[in-house]
């Protein structure tokens, strides 16, 4: 049974912002299909009465005092920027809108 279509992979790639080539999409669709088929077995034992674990070691209320600490200089902030104007990061035109 093929669970993952090429259209689905293309949609996932757009969510993940990766401009996959057509070949990559084709290959990934079949690879993911195999992978998903073998990892879907988690559903066999994941019954309603089992709680989910998100953190391996349970901790709670881990806080930081509201005191100014580690701060970068503007130069440090921009040091790895592909493009900047000396103050801010420069990106090309934005098509979409804020969420």
């Amino acid at each position: 049974m093929s669970e993952i279509s090429e259209e689905q992979v293309a949609h996932l790639a757009s969510l993940a912002r990766i401009a996959l080539t057509d070949d990559e999409i084709t290959n990934l669709a079949s690879e993911l299909d195999q992978i998903v088929n073998s990892i879907a077995k988690v559903q066999e034992v994941a019954t309603d009465d089992v709680p989910a674990t998100s953190h391996p070691i349970p901790l709670r209320n881990v806080y930081r005092p509201d005191v100014v600490g580690d701060t970068l200089t503007q130069e440090q902030a921009l040091q790895n920027a592909p493009d900047d104007d000396g103050q801010r990061f420069v990106v090309s035109a934005i098509l979409g809108e804020e969420q």
């Binding site: 930081r64 005191v67 100014v68 600490g69 580690d70 701060t71 970068l72 200089t73 503007q74 902030a77 921009l78 103050q87 801010r88 990061f89």
Partner: peptide, 15 residues
Amino acid sequence: AAPNGFGDEPNTNVS
């Protein structure tokens, strides 16, 4: 722990 100060010189209140 970066300062909460929007409106300052850009990219200076960042960690």
